[in-house]
Amino acid sequence: MRRVFVYGTLRVGMYNYEYYYKAHDTFRRYAYVKGSLHAIRGKAYPALTIGDEMVLGEIHEVPDDVQNEVDLMEGFFGEGRIENEYDKVFCTIYDDLGEEIDHLPVYFYNLRNPENRKLIGDVISCNDYVKYLEIRKTDER
């Protein structure tokens, strides 16, 4: 089993959570990581980049074989590979009071890849991808 921090479509209730994690009862708790959350042009998932905002996400404990599948889905082919869509970076994880609670892998959007840089969209200022989708849905009505 591996613990991982997720902030986008692997969060509880989102489509990748339903596909990869739900059957394994992986959710452990809500938490935060420092970064900057962005929309990605033409994609239905977010990008986390380096930053100082507290981005809401979740800690999950996942079977190794499932996490290996998720690495491929996230476009993570190995450490430092330019073709990665996301890099896996070990980061400090915080609770809602800003206290350090863990050090876990987090998928950061690979901005070393020039194709990825072209797709970075607006900052998601609420720092919560699920809330951002709810706000967008309400605004479309």
Rank of each mutant, 00 (worst) to 15 (best):
D122N: 14
Y132W: 15
R117P: 03
E53N: 15
N84H: 07
G121T: 03
T9M: 05
H38N: 05
V62T: 12
F5C: 03
L48I: 06
G51P: 09
E99S: 10
V4H: 09
E134L: 14
C126I: 14
E79D: 10
L56W: 07
K22S: 13
D139I: 10
D71H: 12
V66G: 13
G13V: 14
E53L: 03
R141H: 10
E18L: 15
D95Y: 08
D71A: 06
F5G: 04
Y32T: 00
F77S: 07
E115D: 15
R41P: 00
L48Y: 04
E74D: 01
F76D: 06
F108A: 00
K118Y: 05
G57S: 05
G78A: 09
I50M: 03
G121S: 08
G75M: 07
Y129C: 02
E61T: 10
Y45M: 10
N113T: 10
R136G: 13
P63A: 15
I120L: 15
D95K: 03
E140R: 10
Y17T: 12
N16L: 15
D96T: 04
K131Q: 15
V106R: 01
R2W: 02
E83R: 11
E140C: 06
V55R: 10
I101H: 05
L37I: 03
I82G: 01
L37H: 04
R117Q: 12
L97W: 00
E74H: 10
V89C: 00
T49S: 07
I40D: 03
M73D: 02
T138D: 05
G51Y: 06
V123P: 00
V12C: 13
I59Y: 01
A47S: 13
K88G: 01
L111H: 08
A23E: 15
V6L: 06
P46D: 08
Y15H: 15
I82M: 15
E74W: 06
E69L: 12
Y32K: 00
I82D: 09
G98W: 11
I93K: 02
G35R: 04
I135S: 10
D65Q: 14
D95P: 04
M54K: 02
P46S: 02
R28H: 09
L10Y: 06
L10E: 08
D95M: 02
